[in-house]
Design a protein around this nucleic acid. Sequence first.
DNA 1: TCGAATTTGTGCGTATGTATC
DNA 2: GGATACATACGCACAAATTCG
Lengths: 251, 251
Amino acid sequence: MAFGEQPAYLRVAGDLRKKIVDGSLPPHTRLPSQARIREEYGVSDTVALEARKVLMAEGLVEGRSGSGTYVRERPVPRKIARTGYRAVNGGSTPFRQEQSAEGARGTWESRSEQVEAGAKIAERLAIRPGDRVMCTRYVFRDAGEAMMLSTSWEPLALTGRTPVMLPEEGPLGGCGVVERMAAIDVVVDNVAEEVGARPGLAEELTALGGVPGHVVIVVQRTYYASGRPVETADVVVPADRYRVAYHLPVK
Amino acid sequence: MAFGEQPAYLRVAGDLRKKIVDGSLPPHTRLPSQARIREEYGVSDTVALEARKVLMAEGLVEGRSGSGTYVRERPVPRKIARTGYRAVNGGSTPFRQEQSAEGARGTWESRSEQVEAGAKIAERLAIRPGDRVMCTRYVFRDAGEAMMLSTSWEPLALTGRTPVMLPEEGPLGGCGVVERMAAIDVVVDNVAEEVGARPGLAEELTALGGVPGHVVIVVQRTYYASGRPVETADVVVPADRYRVAYHLPVK
DNA sequence: TCGAATTTGTGCGTATGTATC
DNA sequence: GGATACATACGCACAAATTCG
């Protein structure tokens, strides 16, 4: 390596990137193995490895152990509909609606536990820190592939000792917040969503089949009944595969 | 290392991450040097390095050569309100409303030019590729600091040879799409927004005062009048400083 | 002002495990 | 089973930046 230059691994990565974006290495093709890169560019094993890592971090390629490193398809991001504009036709969890709209088969798993609200959750639910809440973690799958993580919190002061205390059990299990709250005479009338984005945490991205460093969209959603928060959730989706769509009336 | 476990570098990164998020390593503190990590966790130099790299990719820490690795401050993202729920009190551009709500002084610059619609813009505006459109680029500033980029397209078939052809000139200059369209008897009645995110391009991040590799939120917004698109725009904001907020009625 | 110590950033060579073909 | 290729890990070296006496 010399003075005013780029690091070797960035030079190699840049050359490979160029071949990928200009199409001379189309999707699904294998790029040169680490050993081949080492020969072709006259670099060490580590440099070839680092170069591949850069491309993997950018989401351009995907390493398959024992097989090779392959150029990834860059999917057109699919929409996740989050509209309050059109009335949703039937009862649904917030994300059943768009899955059916896309014609996909959505499944999910969940696990609930009672915990004490931390400062941030307490603020979002307008309760006191330390108050008990029902915390439920979801993994949503689309055609078997994890596509969304969600963590929801509901104040037990509201749902405790009612049939809907556990979101996914009982006759209304999996029916969505609005229907479940309706069953205990809580009328959910509006929802606030804050959409942010950040690099995904390592554990999120392993769960979502992504690569550490990839971008995720985070939706902080809170349902309200007469101004009172009744449920809040963090929804995490990979940004390279999904967009969040809103459809609003004007005025 | 053993069989059913996580890789060592993920275990170390996970432990450090926990200390960061639970506050025992607050912002601006230095985390243990590579040598210290190696000792404390009983791992090699490479593992300590990889662990730091994971945290850097997640944006939790920042390496300063020769000095140390420091926990980054995570500014509380400010909200950009994008609601159609509450009627907006006065005439405003889509982003004047939240700036005034935050009490901030918003200014902007713009530059318009006539261009031919590309394939994607044509599809968003439901016109033919090659049809002429008015393309306007904005830079929005908050207290002098660039905080948002926007590029909008309007079909000239609609606004051409009218007083509102140029969004920022004439008596209604800078008044927002809805008011300007109303002046030529086009009643904008709803808007679709698609929120996505990706690593910012180099030119975007220099304009926004960010660092290459930082995440940006991209909002694709289209205004409709009776089902016909009358304006579409790409809005880019840095994700570490802003969130996009929606407030929707339920049902 | 100088220099030594520390720390990150980058790079090299090698070894082992494991998945795929 | 064997060959190939990626994934993880170890140890080492050096340059550049920073800190501090």
